[in-house]
Amino acid sequence: MLKLGLGAILTTGCQSQAEEVVRIGFDDIHGWGPQDPPWLTDSTAHSGRWSYSLSIADDYGPNFSRSWAELNNPKTIRVGAWVWLPHGRITTALAINVERDGEKIYYKSMGFREVVKRYRSWELVHQTHELPADMRPTDMVNVYIWQWGEHHRMKCDDMFVEKLR
């Protein structure tokens, strides 16, 4: 799994009633190393020039992990991303889990096949989560793209977490 920790790709701001606490756009990754990672593509992007290309060999795509305190102690969050799918047979999901001391205390995923109806174009996928009432500041919130079964090439861009309350 890729752990994105570059401060340059995280922004904080307000958007309508939601407070955006994490946003990952892949334009800021281009040029950070001697060569770009193999998953970075400029063939198409939702915003900017670069996006994440999940290959047929990958079980997991882009992900991030932040403590509950780093997310500003939310009770309700919305997680999402823009995805580009080649067709409707894809078995891929946006997943979230919360871990406490290495043990999963919350998990939920949203299969793209159930929500994406247009293919070969960018589609917004998002899901709202009520986090457990007993969250602790050190609990880790993990958001990631997961692919199982028959794998297909897909693209992802502009992942986000918003604090709703």
Rank of each mutant, 00 (worst) to 15 (best):
residue 163 K to D: 00
residue 88 G to E: 11
residue 116 V to S: 06
residue 36 D to L: 04
residue 50 W to T: 03
residue 3 K to L: 15
residue 90 I to W: 02
residue 133 A to N: 05
residue 56 I to W: 06
residue 23 R to Y: 07
residue 93 A to Q: 09
residue 12 T to I: 10
residue 157 D to F: 01
residue 155 K to F: 01
residue 66 R to S: 02
residue 76 T to K: 09
residue 124 L to D: 04
residue 46 H to L: 02
residue 26 F to Y: 00
residue 142 N to P: 11
residue 106 Y to K: 06
residue 1 M to Q: 09
residue 131 L to I: 04
residue 58 D to R: 01
residue 3 K to W: 10
residue 16 S to E: 07
residue 27 D to L: 01
residue 120 R to I: 07
residue 38 P to T: 10
residue 104 K to R: 15
residue 74 P to E: 06
residue 106 Y to Q: 04
residue 101 D to R: 11
residue 98 V to N: 07
residue 96 I to N: 00
residue 103 E to F: 07
residue 33 G to V: 10
residue 33 G to H: 11
residue 40 L to I: 03
residue 98 V to I: 13
residue 125 V to S: 06
residue 116 V to T: 09
residue 133 A to W: 08
residue 159 M to I: 10
residue 77 I to L: 09
residue 29 I to N: 03
residue 24 I to D: 01
residue 96 I to P: 02
residue 6 L to E: 14
residue 156 C to K: 09
residue 2 L to F: 13
residue 124 L to W: 11
residue 109 S to I: 08
residue 146 W to H: 14
residue 160 F to I: 00
residue 29 I to E: 01
residue 2 L to Y: 14
residue 7 G to A: 14
residue 137 P to D: 11
residue 114 E to N: 10
residue 77 I to S: 02
residue 94 L to P: 00
residue 19 E to P: 01
residue 107 Y to F: 14
residue 2 L to P: 13
residue 99 E to D: 14
residue 105 I to M: 08
residue 60 Y to D: 10
residue 6 L to M: 13
residue 66 R to Q: 14
residue 6 L to W: 12
residue 77 I to C: 04
residue 99 E to N: 15
residue 130 E to N: 15
residue 113 R to P: 08
residue 82 W to A: 11
residue 119 Y to F: 15
residue 7 G to L: 11
residue 140 M to K: 12
residue 97 N to I: 04
residue 32 W to N: 05
residue 98 V to Q: 10
residue 110 M to V: 10
residue 46 H to N: 03
residue 98 V to K: 02
residue 148 W to Y: 12
residue 142 N to E: 12
residue 38 P to Y: 12
residue 160 F to G: 00
residue 63 N to S: 15
residue 156 C to N: 06
residue 80 G to W: 00
residue 45 A to W: 04
residue 33 G to T: 14
residue 49 R to K: 13
residue 140 M to L: 15
residue 29 I to S: 08
residue 131 L to M: 05
residue 17 Q to T: 09
residue 14 C to E: 13
residue 58 D to I: 06
residue 109 S to T: 08
residue 68 W to F: 13
residue 7 G to S: 15
residue 98 V to G: 12
residue 22 V to K: 01
residue 123 E to G: 04
residue 156 C to E: 12
residue 88 G to I: 03
residue 138 T to C: 02
residue 165 R to A: 14
residue 3 K to N: 11
residue 16 S to Y: 12
residue 30 H to Q: 03
residue 96 I to R: 11
residue 79 V to T: 10
residue 68 W to C: 03
residue 114 E to H: 07
residue 146 W to K: 13
residue 16 S to M: 14
residue 94 L to M: 03
residue 36 D to S: 02
residue 113 R to H: 07
residue 95 A to W: 04
residue 98 V to P: 08
residue 128 T to E: 14
residue 47 S to G: 13
residue 110 M to N: 05
residue 44 T to Q: 10
residue 131 L to C: 05
residue 34 P to K: 11
residue 4 L to Y: 15
residue 51 S to D: 07
residue 23 R to F: 02
residue 145 I to Y: 04
residue 113 R to W: 10
residue 118 R to M: 13
residue 153 R to F: 03
residue 3 K to R: 12
residue 160 F to L: 00
residue 134 D to H: 13
residue 19 E to Y: 05
residue 152 H to T: 10
residue 133 A to M: 02
residue 87 H to G: 13
residue 48 G to T: 00
residue 69 A to M: 12
residue 79 V to R: 00
residue 124 L to C: 02
residue 3 K to D: 14
residue 81 A to S: 09
residue 27 D to Q: 01
residue 46 H to K: 09
residue 72 N to H: 12
residue 45 A to H: 03
residue 69 A to L: 08
